[in-house]
């Protein structure tokens, strides 16, 4: 456990800049939106771009953190440490998972900041207006984050140790796996249709949002796919991290 903390500290020391910048920019965008509009619908409109960008960014940064270890030959010192090779991968994965959770915290904070009694949320889901919006945000963000980080980890693990075309191969694999996951989403989530599909209408002071849906089958599918890729990636790291 302490070794994991030391590895996380190292990731923070070396790779905090892009994470901090993305968090700060999102918070700034949220605050500017609140200042000028002060309404949850406009806040969602403003935050959707940084939310999606952060998901992609963290997955790309996770892949890049492995690549940079190999490019700088620092993987020699990591693999020579008295720890399991998969712990190195777990630390990198957790670092970007924590970054995602921080981003989720900022997004939730911005939404909470802009919610008001004027906002009306209409849905078949039980619960109060703002809590439904927050629940949808948490479920979407975490399930997609889990999927993207898992695929990124797996594509790195699969291509690790390859001397040639590693970059192209890992990027191609990442796109291939994401496409395959998207293609399989419809038939697999249809098996879980019993879990329901809930539309959420948000009517704010200045605008309305009617295109949001809460789809538990998708959250379960994306989260499980992400976990599967993560576990398979960690297994591959343990087996193949070899100089």
């Amino acid at each position: 456990m302490t070794q994991l903390l030391f590895l996380l500290q190292k990731e923070w020391r070396l790779r905090s800049k892009p994470v901090l910048i993305s968090l700060a920019l999102t918070l700034a965008a949220g605050m500017v939106s609140w200042f000028y509009a002060g309404d949850i619908t406009s806040m969602i409109g403003v935050l959707i771009a940084p939310a999606i960008a952060s998901l992609v960014l963290f997955a790309v940064l996770l892949a890049g953190s492995f690549t940079s270890e190999w490019q700088q030959n620092t993987h020699y010192q990591l693999l020579a440490l008295p720890i399991s090779p998969s712990l190195i991968a777990i630390a990198k994965y957790l670092y970007y998972l924590l970054a995602g959770l921080l981003m989720l915290g900022i997004l939730s904070f911005c939404l909470a900041f802009s919610s008001s009694e004027q906002t009306q949320v209409t849905t078949a889901l039980p619960g109060s207006g703002f809590s439904i919006v927050l629940l949808a945000l948490v479920c979407y963000y975490l399930s997609i984050l889990s999927l993207l980080l898992g695929v990124s980890l797996f594509s790195q693990a699969y291509t690790i140790g390859r001397a040639s075309y590693r970059g192209i191969l890992s990027k191609s694999l990442l796109l291939l796996l994401l496409s395959a996951t998207a293609l399989l989403a419809v038939p697999i989530t249809s098996l879980m249709d019993g879990l329901g599909y809930y539309e959420i209408d948000i009517n704010g002071a200045y605008a309305s949002l009617t295109e949001i849906s809460f789809y538990p089958a998708f959250f379960i599918y994306a989260t499980l796919a992400g976990l599967t890729f993560t576990l398979a990636g960690l297994y591959l790291f343990q087996r193949r991290m070899d100089l």
Binding site: R13, L14, Q72, N73, T74, H75, Y76, Q77
Partner: peptide
């Protein structure tokens, strides 16, 4: 090969 973190 040099194996230490250049940024540290």
């Amino acid at each position: 090969v040099p194996c230490y973190y250049p940024a540290m």
